[in-house]
């Protein structure tokens, strides 16, 4: 079947199988390999992308479901020369080690800042229940997200800088 989908601002006409997952189409047809697959049960969040501006797990969405909609992946939010503030904060605060969960974390982080009313350390930690990292112990991820939030939406942060 055919779908039309806007991916990172580019309109794509794709021939897909009805049982294709959004994550597989992103990776295998569009060659956007930054969206990772870390589990089969929708827990780890490594495949998090934005669908119409909201974070979703691309491993738990059929590609057929996104016909006519807009998808943003990690490749669509910034580039090495022009990093998104969330990307920059991850580097600045050493919020990644092996990098595998990182795209999903960053996509969720942006969504968290955009769609939260208040952001303090507890809200960030709770907000990450759908993303698993095995390397960092989350300490620096929380710190990076808080600092990115300071830049992206200063009014939402309510605590002093997370140390």
């Amino acid at each position: 079947m055919k779908i039309s989908v806007t991916v990172n601002g580019v309109d794509e006409e794709l021939e897909i199988t009805p049982n294709a997952l959004l994550a597989d189409v992103i990776r295998d047809q569009l060659y956007l390999s930054g969206t990772h697959i870390g589990c089969d049960t929708s827990q780890c969040g490594a495949c998090t992308v934005h669908l119409n501006g909201m974070a979703v797990k691309a491993c738990t969405v059929l590609a057929a479901q996104v016909d006519g909609q807009a998808v943003t992946t990690i490749e669509g939010i910034g580039s090495p020369a022009d990093l998104h503030p969330m990307q920059a904060a991850f580097k600045e605060h050493h919020a990644l080690q092996c990098g595998f969960c990182t795209p999903g974390m960053i996509m969720r982080g942006i969504d968290l800042v955009n769609n939260s009313e208040v952001l303090d350390e507890a809200a960030i930690r709770e907000g990450l229940e759908g993303n698993i990292c095995r390397c960092t112990g989350y300490h620096n991820i929380v710190k990076a997200m808080f600092n990115a939030a300071l830049e992206m939406a200063p009014g939402k942060t309510t605590e002093q800088e997370v140390v």
Binding site: N19, L21, D40, T41, S42, C59, T60, Q65
Partner: peptide, 26 residues
């Protein structure tokens, strides 16, 4: 029927369901 799919799609992925047709209600 497929609603949000957050339970159903993982079920498909585990091959615990084998529907002939998926009817998206979105």
């Amino acid at each position: 029927y497929l609603a949000g799919g957050q339970t159903l799609i993982p079920t498909f992925k585990q091959r615990l369901a084998a529907p002939s047709d998926v009817i998206d209600l979105a």
